[in-house]
C-alpha cells in the first residue's frame, strides 16, 4: 500500500481541486484522507455520506470548581495567558485564552482546578459519491490542527485501505510547514507539491522541499496557473530539475477549476479537454513512479 500526499504552501493554488481529480481517477483503488482540516473543502466535491462519526479530544482547558475554590487567587497570578479573571473573588477561566499548560492546576492549594480535555472537533469515516471511502474531520473555532489529528485521520485511512485491499491512500495535506505538515508527510511514499508561479509559490516550494528531502520522500511538482508568469514557471521547473523533483506538469490559468467546483464535480469529470488530459497524465506519472 502506498501513501501519496498532496500539499501546497500557501492556499488558493488549486490543491484541493487537483486532489479531487486524483481521487476520481483512483476511485476504485484508493482510500482518501482529508488532512487539510483548517479549510477542509474536499467534501464539497466528494459529497460524502457519513458512516461513522467520532468526537475528537485533544487540547486541555482548566475548569475551576466554584464550590471547592477558596478564592486565594494563586491561579490568576501564575497564569501567563490572562485566561483567569475574577469578580468578587469568584474565579473563572476564559477558554479562548487558556493554553492548557496546567500551571494553575498545579498551584491550587485545594485542588479546585481540573484540566479537562476539550472537545476539539469530530472525525468521520464516509463513503464518497465515488463509493471510495473518505476519512475527514472538522475542528471547532480557535482550535488548531495538530499532528495528533492528522496522524489519526491517516491511520484510520490506512487501516481501511488494508482491510479493503486498496493499494493507495491519497492524502489532501495540511497547509504551511508546521507540525501538521510534518505529520502529513511522516510515513508517506510520495509527496505532490502544487504551486503557482508567483514569488510566494517559489518560496514555499523551497521550504517544503527541505522538509521532504530531510524525510527522504520522493517529490513531484505541479505548477498551476503556469501562464500567469512564464519566467517564474521556468524558475520552478529548473529548481525541480536541480533537486531531483519529478516535474509532473503544468496547467495554464483555467476557469474550469471554478466551473467544475460550482457543479460539484472534479475537473476530470467536468470536461474532457486539454486540462483534464494533463491531470490524467499527471496521475499516471505518479502511479508509475510510486509502483516502481
Amino acid at each position: 500500500m502506498k501513501e501519496i500526499v498532496v500539499i501546497s504552501g500557501k492556499g488558493g493554488t488549486g490543491k484541493t481541486s487537483i486532489t479531487a481529480s486524483f481521487a476520481y481517477l483512483a476511485r476504485s483503488v484508493a482510500v482518501i484522507a482529508d488532512c487539510d482540516v483548517d479549510a477542509a473543502d474536499l467534501h464539497l466535491i466528494l459529497k460524502p455520506t457519513i458512516k461513522r462519526k467520532e468526537n475528537f479530544y485533544s487540547s486541555f482547558e482548566a475548569k475551576i470548581d466554584p464550590v471547592a475554590c477558596i478564592g486565594c487567587g494563586k491561579c490568576e497570578r501564575v497564569c501567563r495567558f490572562d485566561a483567569i479573571s475574577s469578580e468578587n473573588r469568584i474565579f473563572t477561566v476564559n477558554p479562548l485564552n487558556c493554553e492548557g499548560c496546567g500551571y494553575c492546576e498545579k498551584v491550587c492549594p485545594v485542588d479546585a482546578i481540573k484540566m479537562t480535555q476539550k472537545l476539539d472537533g469530530e472525525w468521520y469515516i464516509s463513503e464518497s459519491r465515488y463509493v471510495t471511502p473518505l476519512v475527514h474531520a472538522k475542528l471547532g473555532i480557535g482550535t488548531e490542527n495538530s499532528g495528533k489529528l492528522v496522524a489519526l485521520v491517516k491511520n484510520v485511512a490506512k487501516q481501511l485501505a488494508q482491510k479493503s485491499n486498496k493499494d493507495i491512500v491519497l492524502v489532501d495535506g495540511s497547509p504551511g510547514i508546521g507540525c501538521p505538515v510534518i505529520s502529513s508527510l511522516s510515513g508517506a511514499h510520495f509527496v505532490v507539491f502544487v504551486t503557482e508561479p508567483s514569488v510566494s509559490g517559489i518560496h514555499d516550494l523551497k521550504r517544503v522541499y527541505e522538509l521532504a528531502a530531510k524525510f527522504n520522500i520522493s517529490a513531484g511538482l505541479i505548477i498551476n496557473k503556469s501562464d500567469l508568469n512564464h519566467e517564474k514557471t521556468n524558475d520552478l521547473i529548473s529548481f525541480a530539475e536541480q533537486n531531483n523533483i519529478l516535474f509532473l506538469g503544468q496547467i495554464p490559468y483555467n476557469e474550469n477549476f471554478t466551473q467544475a467546483m460550482i457543479k460539484g464535480l472534479s475537473i476530470v469529470e467536468f470536461s474532457d479537454d486539454e486540462i483534464s488530459k494533463t491531470i490524467r497524465q499527471m496521475w499516471t506519472k505518479i502511479v508509475n513512479f510510486v509502483e516502481n
Partner: peptide, 29 residues
C-alpha cells in the same frame, strides 16, 4: 488565514473585520 489561534490573537482587539472571499463553493464554505 484560517480560524485557529493566530487568527483569534489577530482579531481580538480590532475595531472592524473585512472578510475576503471568492464567489465559489470553496470560498463560501
Amino acid at each position: 488565514p484560517g480560524t485557529a489561534c493566530p487568527v483569534i490573537e489577530t482579531l481580538k482587539d480590532v475595531d472592524f473585520v473585512l472578510l475576503v472571499t471568492e464567489p465559489t463553493p470553496f470560498g463560501l464554505n
